[in-house]
Computed example of a mutant assay.
Amino acid sequence: MPTSRKLSARLMQLQELFSRNEDWLIVINADPDAMAAAMALKRIMSHRVRKVTIARINEISRPDNLAMIRYLRISMLPLSDCLKNQATRFAMVDSQPHHNPAFEGIPFSIVIDHHPTSPEHPVEAVYTDIRPKYGAVSTLMTEYLRGFGIRPGIRLATALQYGIRTDTATFTRAGTENDLRAYQYLAAHGDTGLLTRITRSEYLPQWLKYFARAFSSMHQCGNWAYCYLGDVESPDILVLIADFFTRVHGLKWVGVCGVYKETVVVIFRGDGHLDLGAFAASRFGSLGNAGGHRALARAEFPLAATEGRSVDVFVFRKLTDRPQKKKEEENRGRGEGTL
């Protein structure tokens, strides 16, 4: 079946969910791709439902994200019990219900994402569209807009462009032909000047000290590196530094670790030769939430899981430990198998 027919069938299914008597709440873990995708879904819902509100579960501190909100005038509220009580239906983009405890208990009717699914956490919603091969949900939502015959305005087109840029690292880290086609289409409707202003707002002066910590703590192990930053004021700092290290010649991947509010966070970035999503899940999945894509992944687990040991050493050993199965095979090859 041609892709256009599949999309049309999806759009018909999606449209059947909309009623002018209902108030929708789009819940996101706010980053550029999530915010842009939520804006697009809100635009699709406009005139089809009574009210649409975008709610975020996280605090926003990255300067480029704040610039995106300011320049593109993104209307978004912190998630609260009051907002949840006022809504009659819920949607989610760029995430899945098991990704964060803040999503627990919310009966999502729509889940649209590009992160891989987990067999242990099947997504249950009336409407789901999860496409791990896409570099950004903004790409998928651009296809939705075109399928509905909606031409994005300047601010929406610019937001979707920026969403694709950030999640694909401007097509150097990930991305497919679909992402490129969507970006080219949006370029004809967006504002290059606004996009430039947003992309140039990346760092706060008080964050520079973390780069010094990263350089001084870095362990380089062949073609990969690990660094530990200690306590950080925002996990976004770990993301910025991990992205920075992807520009270092010879590094295939990097893990950047820090502690935020009694939670250990490890950010992975790479060139895709190692499936970092699967790697993160195998090393840290038993401790908390871990996973992602081939080229970018994340792990989060309670500080208490280290049982008082050095976080730096604990995480580094997790990264360097060989899987037990591989050890057993090597032992058998040396005649050292257990009885």
Rank of each mutant, 00 (worst) to 15 (best):
A102I: 09
S216T: 13
V265G: 08
A297K: 08
N178Q: 12
T192L: 15
E336C: 02
I154F: 00
A304R: 14
T142H: 09
M12V: 11
E59W: 01
Y183W: 12
T196E: 15
L7P: 05
I57M: 06
A34Q: 13
K326P: 00
G272Q: 12
P152D: 01
S118P: 00
R317K: 13
I69K: 12
G105W: 15
R56V: 02
H98T: 10
T199Q: 15
F244M: 08
G258F: 00
I74L: 08
Q220L: 06
H47A: 10
R48W: 07
Y162K: 00
V137H: 01
D94K: 09
P107Q: 05
H189N: 12
L156K: 04
D81V: 04
V266F: 14
P107S: 05
W224V: 00
Y260F: 07
M76W: 00
L72F: 09
K42L: 01
Q206M: 09
R56F: 01
H249W: 11
N289F: 05
G333N: 13
A280I: 14
R165S: 05
I57Q: 03
G175N: 07
G288D: 15
F268I: 12
T158M: 07
Q220H: 07
R131D: 03
P32C: 13
R200W: 15
P2E: 15
T176I: 07
Y127D: 04
P78M: 03
E59K: 12
S61P: 00
G135T: 01
Y162S: 01
F268P: 08
A242M: 07
Q206S: 14
A36N: 04
D31R: 00
P205Y: 00
P132W: 00
L156Y: 07
G230R: 02
G255C: 12
R269K: 09
V126N: 02
L339D: 03
E329G: 01
H98F: 11
A87H: 07
P132S: 08
Y144Q: 05
L287M: 11
T263I: 15
Y260D: 02
K261I: 13
G175Q: 11
G255K: 01
Y210M: 10
R5S: 07
A242T: 03
T117H: 00
V266A: 14
H249Q: 05
G291N: 08
V123G: 02
D243H: 02
R146D: 02
P152V: 01
L83T: 06
Q184S: 08
F316H: 11
